[in-house]
């Protein structure tokens, strides 16, 4: 126990509180808004005390949005499922393709390997909107527009470079001698990849997967252009809350709370594993 003066402890506490309030305020405010009606939200001045209501959540879950100008059907739960499905599948496909590719780029310097790796990274440089117009035309010709397969394919533009470059770095950090030792012990290169490289790069793969998942989840513009209502994720689906009779702040907040819950839960779960894994990576040889 180190000795710190009372004043120092108070100042430190105050500073920490300020930081937490600053960063958590939007989340807390959205959380509170999700339990209010549009009227109480739009009160001036805003008030901290209100009568909570679950109406927003009921509306989202039943899919019936009641506004001043009548009842609207919204597909929020469908959108949420789309988000989960699209993000999970995209990350799974990207891991399946990206991790072996990252290993190849890290361990085998073949002709043009750097160029290919850089080309894959350059997918992230192009503004999405610039890519979208020709992509839409192609997809319509190929019959991929408004299909899950088409969307998952396009999501690889987001996930694959990310996973490839992060995981490659982790593979490169594994001393080659460790893999040589396993080969010399009599194991095939594939066994070496599975039993040595994959477990040792595990934390890196998890981190890259998590990051790719968050990027895929938050994607807006690809899905906006390439998917119609029944394939749209929550990010696009949220547009439905801007109705002819005004913006439904209550429902938007509830929708945000519901849609950040999976990523938040995943991040919290993975965080423990990530920290543990990263400290393992620090010990070499």
């Amino acid at each position: 126990m180190e000795h710190t003066s009372l004043l120092e402890r108070i100042l430190r506490g105050a500073a920490l509180t300020l930081v937490v309030i600053f960063f958590m305020f939007p989340i807390v405010w959205i959380f509170m808004m999700s339990f209010q009606t549009n009227e109480t939200i739009l009160r001036i001045p805003p008030q901290l005390v209100f009568e909570p209501t679950l109406a927003n959540y009921t509306a989202l879950i039943t899919g019936k949005l009641t506004t001043a100008s009548g009842t609207l059907d919204i597909a929020f739960m469908r959108n949420l499922w789309n988000s989960v499905f699209l993000s999970t599948t995209s990350v799974a496909v990207a891991l399946l393709l990206g991790v072996p590719a990252a290993y190849a780029f890290a361990r085998h310097k073949f002709r043009g390997s750097e160029d290919i790796a850089f080309t894959l990274l350059s997918f992230r440089f192009a503004p999405a909107l610039l890519v979208l117009l020709p992509l839409t035309l192609y997809f319509q010709k190929l019959g991929l527009a408004n299909t899950y397969i088409g969307l998952i394919w396009v999501y690889q533009l987001i996930c694959l470079p990310l996973i490839l470059w992060i995981v490659r770095g982790y593979f490169e950090d594994i001393p080659a001698d460790i893999e040589y030792a396993y080969r010399i012990a009599g194991h095939s290169w594939f066994a070496t990849f599975r039993k040595i490289a994959l477990p040792l790069a595990g934390p890196g793969i998890a981190a890259a997967g998590l990051l790719a998942f968050i990027f895929a989840w938050n994607n807006f513009v690809f899905a906006l252009v390439l998917a119609s209502a029944d394939k749209q994720p929550v990010t696009v689906g949220a547009l439905a809350f801007i109705t002819s009779s005004g913006i439904q702040y209550g429902q938007i907040s509830a929708a945000i709370v519901l849609s950040i819950t999976p990523t938040l839960a995943l991040a919290l779960y993975a965080q423990r594993y990530l920290v543990e894994g990263l400290s393992l990576g620090a010990v070499k040889g």
Binding site: D177, A181, Y182, R183, G186, S188, L200, L280, K284
Partner: peptide
Amino acid sequence: VDAEFRGVGMAFQNFALFPH
């Protein structure tokens, strides 16, 4: 011939133990 079929034993200077 690939390393796994040569039937040699090797000890490395940096030990190269499998950390996991």
